[in-house]
Simulated assay, not measured.
Amino acid sequence: MFLLHDVLAVACGSLVGFSLALIGGGGSILAMPLMLYVVGLHDPHLAIGTSALAVSLNAFANLIPHARARHVRWRAAFVFAAAGVVGAYLGSSLGKIIDGRRLLVLFALLMLVIAVLMLRGRRRNDSTAQPSRNMFPRLGAIGFGAGGLAGFFGIGGGFLIVPGLLLGSGMSIIEAVGSSLLCVGAFGMTAALNYATSGWVAWPIAWEFVAGGIAGGWLGSWGALKLSRMRGALSTLFALVIVAVGLFMLAKSLLL
């Protein structure tokens, strides 16, 4: 039984890492349902704390190649992350006191919202985008809100962070994607440590999930180059998968 849990944790981590690298943001939203329904962490709070840690470490690992390629706007990312960490701590503290069943219903509704945003697509900036004036107060306000939501649900929040960085700073899309990984890592780690103080992190499963995520990310990066012309269709397919999982979670939570 323990071996099966280990294999499932690595496989689920690989799936999330592969999806993120192949089609972009939204993959981390699947981490918690996979922890809950596939790996077998039956406590919603334990699944959220563990997935938050796994998402955080995967984000920091994937930040390295973006930093080497100079796709990270460090000052803007630090301001966004610093304000967001405060929001993530408050959000995760609130999430810890919410009844597990209600938390799952809210999480399922969030999945449906994310799927709609993915189907609509992101507004993309070109590589010549110019920094906005007086951007740091705006980045701080947006970061606080994004961090609060990420902390509450134990997610990476990239679907909010990337457009938030674009709106607040005027940076290019590739810089927003690279910079968002620092924020995702910071938000996830804040939530994970908050949950860990209550004993709601399954550490061995988190490490296995991270290992699978790194391997899946490498494979997804290779696939992104080979399937670049199909990424729009893949994103649509992935959004529909999120809809299906969200509806499943909603039905299961309401019928319990």
Rank of each mutant, 00 (worst) to 15 (best):
F2K: 15
L4H: 08
D6R: 15
L8A: 13
G17M: 11
F18K: 05
I23Q: 12
I23V: 15
G24R: 12
G24Y: 01
L36A: 09
L36N: 07
H42S: 15
L46D: 12
A47W: 02
G49L: 05
T50C: 08
L63P: 02
L63G: 00
P65R: 11
A67G: 10
H71M: 11
R73I: 02
R73L: 10
W74R: 12
F78E: 02
F78I: 15
V79G: 01
F80E: 01
A81R: 09
A81W: 06
A82G: 11
A82Y: 04
G84M: 01
V85F: 06
S92Y: 07
S92Q: 06
I98P: 04
D99L: 06
D99F: 09
L104W: 02
L104S: 07
L104M: 15
V105Y: 03
L106K: 05
F107T: 02
A108H: 04
A108R: 00
L109N: 03
L109K: 04
L110Y: 03
A115M: 03
G121C: 08
R123K: 14
T128I: 05
N134G: 14
F136R: 05
G151C: 04
G151F: 07
F152Y: 09
I155K: 06
G158R: 08
F159Y: 11
I161L: 11
P163K: 11
L165D: 09
L166G: 04
L167T: 15
S169Q: 06
A176H: 09
S179C: 01
S180L: 10
C183E: 02
C183F: 00
V184P: 04
F187R: 03
A191E: 04
A191L: 01
A192I: 07
L193H: 01
Y195D: 05
A196W: 11
T197V: 14
I205A: 13
E208K: 15
V210C: 04
V210Y: 07
V210P: 08
V210H: 08
G216D: 03
W222V: 15
A224Q: 13
L225E: 14
K226C: 03
K226W: 07
S228C: 13
R231I: 15
T236V: 15
A239V: 12
V243N: 02
L250S: 01
K252C: 01
K252T: 13
K252R: 14
L254K: 08
